[in-house]
Write a protein that binds this DNA or RNA. Structure first.
Lengths: 212, 212
DNA sequence: GTCTATAACTAGATAGAC
DNA sequence: GTCTATCTAGTTATAGAC
């Protein structure tokens, strides 16, 4: 955190670090001020309240996610490729903006009711757009999903979970993790190149008979 | 919450409800006392501190999870069946003990350092025992997993996520959700009855060639 | 085992000088 | 735009009566 940044940005970064480690309610404004190298009173020149600092982080995080998803859909044309890019994007966001994403998981309850409504609307929009990617693949016959809504939420929680455990100097770098998650998602959606070959692989009639 | 329960139990249940809704730090002891139908001072006869009430919830939750996993492994013999029962057990725990499980996700940071160490040790133990189920299947040739540790964490976060969204009067009842999650996990581990048939399905030499 | 009263402290936010 | 000083309210926990 450079000292030359403007104060608002230093406060934002202090909030990300402290809310992630201790949580919103366990972080006094005085602690935010100390990390941001400012006095507590001065902080209120840049933000009207502690709540607004948290809300600011939520808005930025959700908007980045939504923009990333929109880009992913634009740049690819087939359902499979769109899903692959969307998942890669989602996972990389949760490694690159790990702390912000983590706060967005854990501190929704700390938002005021009005702010929470606004953020949940953005989250619902993201989930719905992601779900559309799955439905498109099912309708094209390349994904085979018994319950699209359930698989959608399972995929998103699985991928968002990366923010909980990823270590930047760990065994796998972020690109490797993203690749593996793309592979796992393709298993979850039962990807196959065409309906016929997939049906042969997923539900072979002969094998079914042999089971009894 | 019955008024006839002993006070300690009423305090536990009040804590589960309030910590889930507002979080640990946003829940005053006076609020716990009010919901437990007791005065704030009386609460300290049953628990030495607010922290101890939170820790109590963590210990109970983790111990229930560990016991459930041990039972799952005992009652089944094949890798596939063990995994199926373990996943079903895990998901049903996160619907039946939804609030406790949710708190265990979101409030780890609120534990004192010593308490947190103790709980993380239990969590690591659970993850390691779960991972063993995957390894057993890989060694038996019935699971096909590129990175067992990664798939393990992906499965567990996916299944634990049920506590975040499950509604007891929602579209799917808990048994249906558990069944579908078992199916999804089987896709993730690349289950197949024997090594040969699975290798044919997953990495067909001809298709690989045709790709270039 | 539960109560009332309160100690000791910390919280978020504001006022006004510079 | 940043500072110091402070207001008001709320916090966990304890003391001692019953």
């Amino acid at each position: 955190m450079s000292d030359n940044e403007d104060a608002a940005e230093r406060i934002r970064k202090a909030a990300i670090a402290l809310f992630k480690t201790h949580g919103y309610h366990a972080t006094p404004v005085r602690a935010l001020a100390e990390v941001a190298k400012i006095e507590a009173g001065s902080l209120y020149y840049h933000f009207p309240s502690k709540q607004e600092i948290l809300f600011d982080n939520f808005v930025r995080t959700m908007d980045m996610l939504l923009e990333g998803l929109a880009r992913a859909v634009e740049t690819e044309s087939t359902p499979r490729r769109r899903l692959r890019v969307a998942v890669r994007n989602h996972v990389l966001f949760h490694t690159r903006r790990q702390d912000e994403a983590f706060i967005s998981h854990t501190e929704i309850r700390a938002l005021s009711e009005q702010n929470r409504r606004e953020i949940l609307a953005k989250r619902d929009l993201y989930e719905e757009r992601f779900c559309e990617l799955l439905r498109a693949g099912v309708e094209a016959g390349v994904f085979h999903i018994p319950d699209v809504r359930l698989t959608n939420i399972a995929i998103l929680t699985m991928c968002s979970g990366v923010a909980d455990w990823f270590l930047h100097d760990g065994r796998l770098d972020e690109e490797s993790v993203a690749e593996r998650y793309v592979e796992m998602v393709e298993r979850l959606v039962g990807y196959s190149r065409s309906t016929e070959s997939s049906d042969r692989k997923r539900l072979p009639a002969r094998r079914r008979k042999a089971r009894r």
